[in-house]
Write a protein that binds this DNA or RNA. Structure first.
Lengths: 236, 236
DNA sequence: GGGGCCGGTTCACACAGCGTTCACATATGG
DNA sequence: CCATATGTGAACGCTGTGTGAACCGGCCCC
């Protein structure tokens, strides 16, 4: 369960109670700066912004959360009926809203739906394996919370590995499927790229790419480590 | 203004009145078959499904509207407080809901936001990314508090970048999507415009446009955007 | 209608990054 | 202990990109 950002700090008692009863993990912040400073490493799982008391400040927090360079999805606005008109030109600042005073079950249902939406609508153009995340749209890679600086070929090779975990590929297969053409005698080129990938993955995760002696390389699936039957290699 | 699908037929009087007063064009249908038969050529602009009377039938209509091969976006569910629990395993059937009896202004605000989300509403007249602000109406650009003097093509290119932050585009993609036509051998033209944009953005912000070697260019989003599916966190 | 300016496109060149290759060291298996 | 396979470090050369400048067409002003 990810952590919800809640504004203001402290939040209205009924809001806090509702979130607790519904089983949400949350953290209250008084302004956008604190929100940025206390952001968990996996990012906020959404936000509940209460505009009852200080709508201007609430909208300001929303604006900060929604800036395009680090946009937060899953922002729910809590406001009174008289504030409805203020939403008209601020459609981009929130994903859902709930009228205050609210029915606890309604808020819970909205938050659940919001988490469903952000989990499902989120851009599918990514692939992940354990700690490793590749974003195909941005050509970026992350291992844990550390961004990887990969060259084009390194990225393409890693992308192929991540999308085919567990399988063993010969150097010739990798050359034809990653490089995309038949190759003349340069099988060792793969070794060099694998080596550089291992180096950039770091000491910890270098084992993600395993050498299968006299066959080729395999990505992930470390459960089969050690002495396996040769039949598996022959069958692959 | 596109036409909203409304269920049931006839809808509750207060619903019809609210839609009329808010200026929405709508058409009531009694079941999914009629909805398919009377669908306007441009498609439905969304749906308001009232589950007050016959929730089972309402959910059935939703299921039909949401079938994967012709999924309708912008489905708003109208239900009573006692029906909230029924939403839990039907998250995919709707995009928003509103408790009945409803405040007309709330329903109106929800429908407006739904139309904004589904993109059926006119484009915003400004866009911003970090320090950068573009005003599409006046063709003005500002970086921080400094106005940028951009030519037409520079402005169009920057506008495209700002509205697609983080994604990598090849030169060919940029040519076809910014210049708007297929191009003969002029891929380097993009380079020159990018260079001039960088120069005008200034030393500080030149890094906003990043070169992705042997791929193309990317605007902003150096930091990883954590908007990935929650499954990745669970899978670790 | 002519000349100068402005903006978009194209060209030529230099540099740097990256893919490839080689030579050698090390590991593995028979 | 040998043969083969793989890891490692470094060097080479190509391709892609940055950069300055020229070209060219349209527009406005004189």
């Amino acid at each position: 369960m990810t952590t919800l950002l809640v504004f203001p700090d402290p939040p209205p008692p009924l809001l806090a109670q509702t979130l607790d009863l519904a089983g949400f993990a949350w953290k209250a912040v008084g302004n956008a700066a604190v929100a940025a400073a206390t952001e968990p490493s996996e990012g906020w799982g959404g936000a509940v912004i209460c505009a009852d008391d200080d709508p201007e400040c609430a909208f300001s927090v929303c604006r900060t959360l929604r800036r395009p360079d680090a946009r937060l999805d899953g922002v729910l606005l809590l406001l009174t009926g008289t504030q409805l008109a203020a939403l008209e030109h601020r459609e981009d600042l929130f994903d859902d809203f709930c009228l205050s005073p609210f029915h606890p079950k309604e808020l819970e249902a909205r938050l659940r739906h919001l988490q469903f939406r952000t989990g499902r609508v989120a851009n599918p153009e990514v692939a992940a394996y354990a700690e490793l995340i590749l974003n195909f749209e941005t050509y970026q890679a992350m291992i844990g919370d550390r961004p990887l600086d990969l060259t084009y070929m390194e990225y393409e090779l890693l992308k192929f590995f991540v999308t085919h975990p567990g399988k063993v590929f010969t150097r010739e297969q990798l050359l034809s499927r990653v490089w995309g053409y038949e190759y003349y005698g340069g099988a060792r080129t793969v070794d060099v790229h694998v080596r550089r990938l291992r180096a950039k993955l770091g000491e910890e995760q270098a084992g993600l790419i395993q050498t299968v002696r006299s066959v080729g390389y395999r990505f992930g699936q470390t459960r089969w480590n050690g002495a396996t039957s040769p039949a598996s290699a022959a069958g692959g």
